[in-house]
């Protein structure tokens, strides 16, 4: 019992962080699946969502500010795609990746300008930030809510991908870009929808993530972003369930490492995992095998 009480918080935190990574990872994995682009700006969109709530909740009640934040985040993701990625549709992939890095740099600098470089206190969202006791371990309610909310959202997403026209179009585009274009699929719309879904989930993820961590800084998005990307690679890039499982595994392992007192290496672990998975199973857990055509 003693042991459970000591270690349960870490485990719970692991599941919760895993859920948050999962929500971000979906944005990466869907965009990569369709555009073959690592959207380096995705972590910064997540950060911007956090900052928006900080500023909006100062003047608006939560039932207005939270939906507004989600809306603005979606708008931001949509705009980034239209402005920074769409003009480069025919350019080499490296150019698009550089553009993504440029957007990331821009968003971080805008955040730096707006906040003045200070860490902004994330507002305590009532009910979500309340403290609850689970098996004698104290934790915030958000920790308990996260995995369930994550799974509900992901089930909805999988239903959307498998049973709607938009979802079918997405699957087609990720399978073969050119052919789906020939089949009359409006690719730009499909890509926009992908970014909208990804940004929405990143927005939800930011609500859950920052409720646990309280401080928002301009560079706070980079690390969770990269980790979520690793999760996406781990699960097999392009696969939504894979990304979710990868995210939970990374979240839990990371917190176990923290519990063992190796906090310095909790970040390093994620990347070591990336290297290992790329060496031994380059397509990830559920990825499709790709053969190179000359």
């Amino acid at each position: 019992m003693q042991w459970i009480q000591q270690n349960l918080p870490y485990f719970l935190a692991g599941i919760s962080v895993g859920g948050q990574y999962a929500l971000i990872a979906i944005g990466y994995t869907m965009v990569y699946g369709i555009l073959r682009l690592i959207n380096f700006a995705h972590g910064d969109i997540f950060m911007c969502a956090g900052l928006m709530l900080v500023y909006l909740s100062a003047s608006l009640p939560f039932y207005v500010s939270i939906p507004l934040v989600l809306l603005l985040t979606v708008l931001l993701g949509f705009t980034v795609e239209r402005v920074a990625y769409k003009p480069l549709r025919k350019a080499p992939r490296m150019s698009v990746m550089i553009s993504a890095i440029g957007v990331s740099y821009l968003l971080q600098n805008v955040a730096l300008y707006v906040t003045g470089g200070l860490s902004k206190q994330y507002p305590a969202i009532p009910w979500l930030s309340d403290t609850v006791t689970v098996f004698g371990a104290l934790t915030k309610r958000v920790t308990i809510i996260t995995p369930f909310l994550t799974i509900i959202l992901i089930v909805l997403l999988v239903l959307l991908i498998n049973h709607t026209n938009v979802g079918m179009a997405m699957r087609a585009v990720s399978k073969d870009f050119e052919t789906s274009l020939l089949m009359g699929i409006k690719i730009d719309n499909v890509i926009s929808v992908t970014f909208i879904i990804g940004s929405f989930l990143a927005g939800v993820g930011s609500l859950l993530f920052f409720s646990n961590y309280t401080g928002v800084t301009p560079t706070v998005g980079a690390m969770p972003g990269l980790k979520a990307f690793v999760a996406a690679v781990f699960g097999g890039i392009g696969s939504v369930p894979g990304a979710v499982i990868g995210a939970f595994i990374i979240g839990i392992c990371e917190n176990i490492i923290k519990a063992m007192g190796w906090t310095t290496f909790s970040d390093a672990f994620t990347f070591a995992l990336l290297i290992l998975i790329l060496i031994f199973r380059p397509t990830g857990l559920f990825g499709e095998k790709v053969t190179d055509k000359v």
Binding site: I38, R93, M97, F265, D267, F271, A272, I275, I279
Partner: peptide
């Protein structure tokens, strides 16, 4: 290990290594 990866994976793996070394 890393140079066997292609394109994007190489980018993320090297980025990751830089972070590991820093830690």
């Amino acid at each position: 290990p890393v140079l066997r990866f292609r394109g994007d994976y190489l980018a993320v793996a090297t980025l990751g290594f830089a972070e590991i070394i820093r830690a």
